[in-house]
Design a protein around this nucleic acid. Structure first.
Length: 876
RNA sequence: GCCGGGGUGGCGGAACUGGCAGACGCUCAGGACUUAAAAUCCUGUGGCCUUCGGGCCGUGCGGGUUCGAUUCCCGCCCCCGGCACCA
């Protein structure tokens, strides 16, 4: 008997699958589709076993669905633009393209050696013009619809490297490369108006019933919807302000530029005002001061006034404070008095205006009302600067006094010291005061989001060129769709310094205006690579389309993605951007879908020595090494067996070896029996008379099919599915070992030990069981399963054979073991026929010797029979 | 601080709707085979006690509901992840 030699088998089947285009698919309305997708790969160089775990999970689902008769789309591609390629180019003096394409070639080989059932003819790489053309196309469409716009915005800047950094490249406020403290710069940036869909993206999380709770919560927090009110405080105080103030405030409010949803309504009176955002307008009678962000336009204006030297000094001190430290609240809360006042529109009293370093310009209006009685930050601020504290909400059953208060009291209660609102419950007051504010024209109810518009400009080379030009006479002009793609030019030298690398290529920059034909300059920034990954799942439906990003008909057939798996690190960015893009395509009439991914599985990482695998830690396990030693099938089985897909796993060589041993055990079993059960004319078990052992094996077989089927679909409990298969194998060994003629061989020389089986019934049962086993294991270990299937005398592949069916009646045990509890303790086990009546069961239980013994001297008070599965006796 | 997920043998993990806790695997121990070893096959493997029949304890901790709780409820402790001065 040949030993299990995975390497030869795997090569053979991978070639066959490739040559027969086994996993290539076309739209087929007569078949139900299934779109199975794993997050495509960043071609970083070498895949390690952590990367490939994700692809194996998807492959099991895809292969199983294929066997169940679905038309399965299972594509793969490369998220090929991005910074590492540029850094590698600087370091190794290669071109990012060379580096990227070489990595793709290598990683593709690795994935193919794992035998993943991808439709490789649909492979895409986002760095190719055939793909990024359509990024540009979508950009133009969004520009037409005002979903893309340009404004000045603050970016991270490394003064040492002289370049812009992405947020992800700012580690604890310092440049990831050189460690210099990061500063900020104002630059013109392109934005996608994702906030236009903020409400929809938030509300629709309810429809994502097959997403992990964790991811939905993260997205909800990220969008951060909070309902409240904007209230305007009229400026009072020094008369001279009024003149400059009115001009100021017409354009005030940092959020004016934020985007539509955040747009501030123009002040409806001539009087200059400061607008605040609050979720607790009901506490406004306790608003004893205002606090403005140092970046607030009014503050900026005041600092420019003559004689404001001290004001400027104070302000500069705040502005010099580490921006990142300020953002994460690590520095002390401080403020300074502007010596100006505003009128609280509800109390009519003047309140001082302060500048506070903890007020964020990015959120709300950049101005807040200080309610020290009911907000902890305001409380601390008031204590520090001796500002008055007023209690305006009394909690139920408490009597707060300012004198005894040691901290602010947020939360529920009834209003006091609030004029006409006294006695109202806070929620009622909140509503009423909002309505009143609107009626009086001093404010309005509003919804505030944490979500900001998506800044997509990157001052980088290795990305999609943004397809606009700037003309001296026409201004910003989009590149006409017919002129797309704007090709990314080859670049010779990468220094890693300076602004956008594209700005250094005159042949690229200098162009003519599409409108007037005069000289113009191209936009030299490229798009964030998250743009690439926001719609690639649509491109897979129609990857070679040269007219459109995709044919809507094809997306209608394949979409949405039925099963999507990937790392939880994408829970917010990629997954929210993809949901946004799907809605953009919907509103462009390209699809009727709103949500791209029906079911999401976030797979756990593979750790080694308790740490994430990385080159720098030196704990990377290369799949190729494992394949060489144990074969791809053993590797696949191991990573899926060791823990549920969502959990992290700790890599152990011993575990992999165990999986290999199991596969060798299956191999010996099937190989030993192949001659016996692989012949023609073997009856089905239903056609013959079975003895007890045969019936038991048949029951186990059908029960295993039932369990494994449910574990794979709809649950994706791959680890328990495998343990079910292991149990079946153990049962088959026991069955054979208890039979005189069926000892399973160990080595080639043992082949003779498998005798001729006389009983037709035994052969029938074994055939059914072994064939079901081979079919069910095939999604996990496809190469071995195909080889065994061939050994069993089948010439067409295992997918064509279909997924095994089970008979509920056969799967059911004829005899069951019923535990008997007395006062909650297990006292006996009864073996009874499965169809026993409750009355009979009660009789047998009460007359069982062990039960009788334990009931001695006690009276039975109650006997509970729990859906025929357990007897519980209460006695005392 | 807020939100989410967890805590089960030496280890990874099972346990579906409240019904035999520890499936399956790893590790370890013993047996068979072998000149021997490896491999393989078989058996055992939560703790304590045992007259070998079995008994008691046991799913982070403390309570509760229930005939019965890893599962449900209340109150804690600890770990992991996300967000975080969001007004």
């Amino acid at each position: 008997m040949p030993d299990y030699k995975p390497q030869t088998i795997e090569k053979k089947w991978q070639e066959r699958w490739r040559d027969s285009r086994a996993f290539e698919v076309a739209e087929d309305p007569s078949k139900q589709k299934f779109y199975c997708l794993e997050m495509f790969a960043y071609p970083s160089g070498h895949a390690h076993v952590g990367h490939v775990r994700n692809y194996m999970i998807g492959d099991v689902v895809a292969r199983m669905k294929r066997m169940r008769g679905f038309n399965v789309l299972h594509p793969f591609g490369w998220d090929a633009f991005g910074l590492p390629a540029e850094n590698a180019a600087i370091k190794n003096r290669t071109h990012p393209e060379t580096w990227t394409l070489e990595n793709i070639a290598h990683m593709k080989g690795q994935l193919q050696r794992l035998g993943i059932s991808y439709a490789w003819e649909r492979e895409i790489a986002t760095c190719l013009p055939e793909y990024y053309h359509w990024n540009q196309w979508v950009f133009l469409k969004m520009l037409e619809r005002d979903l893309a716009y340009r404004r000045r915005s603050t970016v991270n800047w490394c003064p040492s490297c002289n370049t812009v950094l992405a947020n992800e490249q700012v580690i604890d406020g310092a440049c990831w490369r050189c460690g210099t403290t990061v500063t900020t710069r104002e630059l013109e940036q392109w934005f996608f108006r994702i906030t236009h869909y903020a409400d929809e993206l938030l509300d629709a999380t309810d429809t994502l019933t097959d997403w992990p709770e964790k991811v939905l919560t993260m997205q909800q927090n990220w969008i951060g919807r909070s309902e409240g009110a904007r209230v305007r405080f009229a400026l009072g105080g020094p008369e001279q302000l009024l003149a400059s103030g009115s001009r100021l405030l017409a354009e005030s409010g940092p959020t004016a530029a934020e985007g539509k949803t955040n747009q501030q309504p123009a002040a409806n009176s001539q009087q200059p005002t400061i607008e605040v955002f609050t979720t607790r307008i009901d506490t406004i009678y306790g608003a004893n001061f205002l606090m403005l962000s140092p970046e607030h336009p009014v503050v900026q204006e005041w600092s420019r006034e003559a004689g404001a030297d001290e004001f400027r000094r104070n302000l500069q001190r705040f502005q010099a404070q580490d921006r990142n430290a300020r953002m994460i609240g690590e520095i002390e809360k401080e403020g300074f008095d502007t010596s100006r006042t505003a009128i609280n529109p509800f109390t009519g009293r003047p309140v001082p205006i302060w500048v506070a370093n903890f007020v964020l310009i990015e959120y709300g209006t950049g101005a807040v009302m200080g309610v020290p009685g009911h907000d902890q930050r305001d409380f601390e601020f008031a204590k520090k600067y001796n500002l008055p504290i007023t209690i305006v909400v009394q909690p139920e059953g408490e009597k707060l006094t300012v004198e005894t208060m040691t901290e602010a009291k947020p939360g529920a209660g009834k209003l006091v010291e609030s004029g006409e609102y006294n006695g109202l419950d806070w929620e009622e007051a909140n509503h009423k005061m909002t309505v009143d504010a609107e009626a009086r024209g001093i404010g309005e109810g509003t919804v505030q989001y944490r979500l900001k518009d998506w800044g997509i400009s990157r001052q980088r080379y290795w990305g999609t060129p943004i397809p606009v030009v700037y003309c001296e006479s026409c201004g910003m002009v989009p590149v006409p769709a017919d002129d797309l793609p704007v090709m990314l030019p080859k670049i010779a030298e990468f220094s890693g310094r300076g602004d956008s690398p594209l700005a250094q290529i005159p042949e690229f920059v200098n162009t003519t205006c599409p409108k007037c034909g005069k000289p113009a300059r191209r936009e030299t920034d490229t798009m964030d690579t998250f743009v690439d990954s926001s719609w690639y799942f649509f491109r897979f439906c129609d990857p070679h389309n040269s007219e459109l990003p995709f044919d809507p008909e094809k997306v209608t057939y394949w979409g949405p993605v039925d099963f999507y798996s990937g790392g939880v690190e994408h829970a917010i960015l990629h997954l929210i951007y993809s949901r946004f893009f799907t809605r953009v395509f919907r509103d462009l009439g390209m699809t009727t879908l709103s949500e791209p991914f029906t079911r999401l599985l976030t797979q756990g990482m593979v750790l080694k020595n308790g740490q994430v695998m990385s080159k720098s830690k030196g704990n990377v396990v290369d799949p190729d090494d494992m394949i060489q030693k144990y074969g791809a099938d053993a590797l696949r089985l191991y990573v899926m067996f060791v823990a549920p897909p969502e959990k992290e796993i700790e890599w152990t060589d011993a575990g992999l070896e165990g999986s290999w041993r199991f596969l060798a055990r299956v191999w010996r079993l099937v190989d030993s029996l192949a001659d016996t059960i692989g012949g023609e004319g073997i009856p089905t078990p239903a056609e013959v008379e079975l003895n007890d052992a045969e019936r038991a094996l048949r029951r186990k077989t059908h029960d295993t099919i039932r369990r494994v089927t449910l574990d794979l679909d709809p649950r994706v409990h791959l680890n328990t599915a495998i343990s079910g298969l292991m149990e079946l194998v153990n049962e088959l060994y026991a069955f054979c070992n208890n039979s005189d003629c069926l000892r399973i061989g160990q080595t080639a020389s043992d082949a003779a030990s498998v005798g001729v089986v006389e009983r037709a019934a035994t052969v029938a049962v074994l055939k059914e069981s072994v064939e079901a086993l081979v079919k069910m294991i095939s999604p996990f270990t496809p190469h071995m399963a195909e080889e065994l299937w061939e050994k069993l005398g089948h010439s067409s592949g295992i997918v064509a054979a279909g997924w095994p069916a089970f008979d509920e009646a056969v799967a059911k045990a004829e005899e069951v073991v019923i535990p008997v509890q007395i006062n909650g303790k297990l006292r006996a086990r009864l073996t009874v026929p499965a169809d026993i009546s409750e009355e009979q069961l009660r009789q047998i239980a009460l007359s069982d010797p062990a039960v009788v013994k334990h009931l001695e001297g006690k009276t039975v008070r109650k006997v509970v029979i729990a859906n025929g599965r357990l007897v519980s006796i209460v006695a005392g």
